[in-house]
Design a protein around this nucleic acid. Structure first.
Lengths: 215, 215, 215, 215
DNA sequence: TATGAATGAGCTTTCATTCAT
DNA sequence: TATGAATGAAAGCTCATTCAT
């Protein structure tokens, strides 16, 4: 019996669950949530449909499980890449690098997270919005701490840093998307562009150098 | 036949098409592309399904038509809000303001464009990517002109400004989304945050003030 | 085009609904609720499944509609066969005859009502129990009126006549079932057996002739 | 291994079979034949599914085994409650009492027998009809003996007593059902109602007091 | 032009049943 | 003996799409 046997039998539950989730991420990332069929997932996973339902539940459940797993992996990658003892700018920089590296190494995961999850209402957005919030909060904390440390009033800082964090996260997502079509650019470079854009602009703002429309 | 009849007959094609597209945008924005049914579109439009197929083609065609129309409206709003004779920063500023105002005034359109269109593969991404490209190019042109004018080498500027433009557009989209949940913040303020973030950071970059990781 | 064309096209809704209900009664009576498949119903009806769902709703709804229709037909047959101006015994007699005649003429209806409906919990039992109640009440009213007229105390009569009515209805159902296997016996005769059994025994009871266990 | 282990291993076949049948009766009575799943039976029984198949065969077989067992219990209860040396009326009376007492003491059994078994075609009706026949024959024998003893011609008695026995059994079933919703009425009372209804009416019939429609 | 009537095709989900250990 | 792991097969339901009028 070859080691490569596509259809291995009687595996423990854990292993099968991983197989299924892997297949699901792949299929969802290729066709999108709605166009993906459970048949294809089962085929790719090398597992019959009833097993999927027995282990992971409905299609919705399966998709949610994918999102949860991938979102956790992504956040772990980012947080794991950051040294909390470093200054704020270095933390942001390392976070960005980790983010782009994760995307580069896990394109299907990213597609599921970015494209599919957002567009499906209710049940999933919760999972997704939760992760997005974590990311935004992470960045927001950095910005906020940095801003107040430079003398900006707390009250004034609160909302603007949150919105900027949202913009940064969104900008990162957008750049990651752009990068999918320009893979020849090293992720390091892409990260540095975003870093510069955000950190310098933010620094200026904190120091009172503000752009204002000429009236 | 009373003047009040909801279902008016024998209307010219243009009017019918508008009715249908309006209904489609509404329905797609509420339920998403896949969960939207042609039945509901026809019901909301007050037009029978065969008419929809006769005038706008398949569901895909209909969705594409929605995107095209809304994307054009959005781009027209942005371009129309910008005075090409103004300096680059003012153009960007007015563009941003117009963008956020459009979103505020056309939430369903925005939802269709931002959430639904992105997540559907192939057929639509073309329409959508086209519009996104127009937006990115618009911004890129501003940045590029400004960068080279300040002495940055063209070759070096090309990719970085494009990526930054992508980041700006993505950041704008993300902020627009954030704003949907914080409508009490005036769009003017949101626009100014993004403007500052981008323009100042970009200015520094152009002038050689660059953030670099401490090695 | 032959008049006998199995698949006639573009019929008005009413006609299709009747076709579908007819087919459903037949199929449900043959295979039972659960073993009946919507595919077979659609095949027998000469109508595609989507029409069934469009017109009659889910399988449950369809079954409920069958029961409702057949139950009404049965009750109408019984009530229609009874002359309210006749004395109680004649009313009961005519009701019994009509009942057995209906069963003889509509065996599938009866199977659906008697065998299938009872065994399916909740949703249907309501429809069914409603009809059964009507039947029991009908009989109960006859018995009760007759009993009190003969001097039995109201309070005492209430429960016993209701229970007896239940027994009569159940006995009727049971006899109808028995008759399905002995169709050579005229329904008239079967009806007379039940009539005698019930009416005579009831009459004795009313007159105080009571059987009691010898202690 | 603790004495308290729910799941005891290596039990003799008899015990396992009883466990399984008990569980099956419970589950079938709760959900009905079709809605009951083998999974639930195995869960309730505390026995894995393969064991069920090994011991009792398919779902149909299992159900048939339930019916057989419960039917036998019921018939044993009835027969065991009757003293064959008593006169016919007392035998009938004791039988009725035993019947209602069994129903009161074994509601799940009764539900399986009365509601579930009847509605499932072919395979089970045989088991069920067999028991029903035994009951009808039992009653029929009593009635027939009593009728011929009173001078009714055998030929004439044959069919009518059989049909009446069917009616009595059906009436009993129906009353048992009625009683499930009126448990405050003592079974003794219910039994006496049915006894009077049947015995008195039958007695009249035997003595030539016959109800006849006025022409 | 306009539509009620109609369907092919496909999807998710469930279950009785059986391997392999 | 006993079971966790696994599946073939089918059922209910929906939807985009098109006739026939």
């Amino acid at each position: 019996m070859s080691v490569e046997d596509r259809r291995v039998k009687r595996l423990p539950r854990e292993v099968r669950e991983k197989q299924i989730l892997d297949a699901a991420v792949q299929v969802f990332s290729e066709h999108g949530y709605h166009n993906a069929s459970m048949d294809e997932v089962s085929e790719v996973a090398g597992v019959s449909k009833p097993m999927i339902y027995a282990y992971l539940g409905s299609k919705e459940d399966l998709f949610a499980a994918c999102i949860r797993r991938e979102a956790n992996l992504l956040m772990e990658a980012i947080v794991g890449g950051v040294d909390q003892n470093q200054p704020a700018d270095m933390q942001l920089w390392m976070g960005l690098r980790s983010f782009f590296e994760f995307v580069a190494a896990n394109k299907p995961s990213w597609r599921v997270l970015h494209r599919q999850a957002i567009s499906q209402g209710g049940p999933f957005s919760e999972e997704l919005v939760a992760m997005r919030s974590r990311a935004i909060n992470l960045v927001d904390a950095l910005l906020f701490r940095s801003a107040t440390r430079h003398g900006v009033e707390e009250q004034h800082a609160t909302k603007s840093t949150e919105a900027m964090a949202a913009a940064l996260v969104g900008g990162g997502e957008s750049m990651a998307d752009w990068w999918l079509d320009h893979p020849e650019v090293p992720t390091r470079v892409v990260a540095s562009w975003l870093m510069n854009l955000v950190w310098m602009g933010f620094g200026d703002l904190v120091e009172g150098t503000v752009w204002q429309p000429t009236p």
